[in-house]
Amino acid sequence: MGKLYLVPTPIGNLEDMTLRAITVLQQADLILAEDTRTSGKLLKHFEISTPMQSHHMHNEHKTVPAIVARIQGGETVALISDAGTPAISDPGFLLVRACVQEGVTVDCLPGATAFVPALVNSGLPNDRFVFEGFLPVKKGRQTRLLTLTEETRTMVFYESPHKLVKTLGQFVEYFGGERPASVSREVSKLHEETIRGTLSDVLQHFEQHPPKGELVVVVGGKK
């Protein structure tokens, strides 16, 4: 029987790619990529010629059984996302679950992910934290925020640039403007920066300076 590898890819700086990740991708029989065009550039940079197949949120429900069958038949399959660690706010969970259920070996390599550097850089307590990823866009959003008002651990969120100000405004409304927070932008990229302060401070900053790039929001828990 083969094996499924989950391989983290750089979220910014290409030097964040590990030697082990390169080796696994070179030796795999198949690479599953969220976007083959994006991943094609990465593979070309590291001179990796392994065949690729598209695997994303719109087709993973249909493709999982066939992929599991290929691994059971002896193939080694590597899953990558556009950036970061697969299955962390990216496709991957369904395939991992199916492999586990079928007794297929799964090996996730350590590597790049945006929320860990952002959490550490925030200066907020990180001995206990909760990763919330992207909040629900509509249905369930208010319920989730109400639940989190009682959360005592540091909270970590992903957010897109065009929704950040609205989300920070909701955080001020539900958590209070004096709650400590930080927003890390473009982690591991050329224009990386972290803005720290109270939620009100951070909101005011991004109202005056519209954000660009990938964002991680870290909010202190209730005391």
Rank of each mutant, 00 (worst) to 15 (best):
G197Y: 00
P161V: 09
E34V: 01
R141L: 01
A78F: 06
F157P: 09
I11A: 04
T149Q: 07
G74E: 03
V217C: 15
F157I: 09
K212M: 13
G84V: 00
H56C: 04
V165C: 10
V202T: 01
T18Y: 03
L148E: 01
K44I: 02
I22F: 13
L168T: 07
D201H: 00
K41N: 10
D107T: 15
V156S: 01
E75N: 05
G213H: 11
P10D: 02
G73Q: 13
I67P: 07
V130L: 05
V219T: 13
M52T: 14
M57V: 12
G123K: 08
H56I: 08
P136E: 07
K212I: 14
A98Q: 11
E47Y: 04
V106A: 03
D16L: 10
V165W: 07
L119D: 02
G84T: 02
A118M: 10
A87L: 08
E151H: 05
T167G: 09
L42G: 09
M155K: 12
N121H: 07
T194V: 15
K222D: 06
L109G: 02
G2E: 11
F175W: 09
E75A: 14
R20F: 14
L164M: 12
G221V: 05
L146V: 02
P161W: 11
R144Y: 12
Q208T: 09
Y174P: 13
K41H: 12
A118N: 11
I71W: 10
S188T: 15
V202D: 00
K3V: 04
G213M: 08
V216C: 15
V77H: 03
V68F: 06
V183W: 13
G73N: 15
S122D: 02
A114V: 04
V104W: 08
L148T: 05
G40R: 08
P51Q: 06
G73C: 14
V187Y: 09
L203S: 04
Q27A: 11
D90V: 07
E178G: 08
H55A: 11
L190I: 15
T152G: 02
V96F: 01
K222M: 05
H162E: 06
P91N: 04
E186C: 10
S89A: 11
V106F: 05
C108T: 09
H56T: 03
V137M: 09
D29F: 02
F115A: 07
G177Q: 14
V217E: 15
D201E: 00
I88T: 05
P180S: 12
T105L: 12
K44Q: 11
H45F: 14
G133V: 01
G133L: 06
V216F: 13
L168S: 06
R20E: 11
L164N: 11
S81R: 11
M155G: 01
R144I: 13
F175T: 08
Q27N: 14
A181V: 04
E150K: 15
R70H: 09
D107G: 05
V96E: 02
E15A: 14
L124V: 03
K212W: 08
D201L: 00
K212C: 13
V104Q: 04
V216R: 10
E15D: 13
V130P: 00
L32R: 03
I31N: 04
K41Q: 14
F46C: 08
T194N: 11
S89C: 05
G92Q: 00
E159S: 07
K189D: 13
L146R: 12
S160R: 06
K222V: 09
P125M: 12
S182V: 00
N59M: 03
L215I: 07
P210K: 03
G123M: 10
I195C: 01
H162V: 00
Q53L: 12
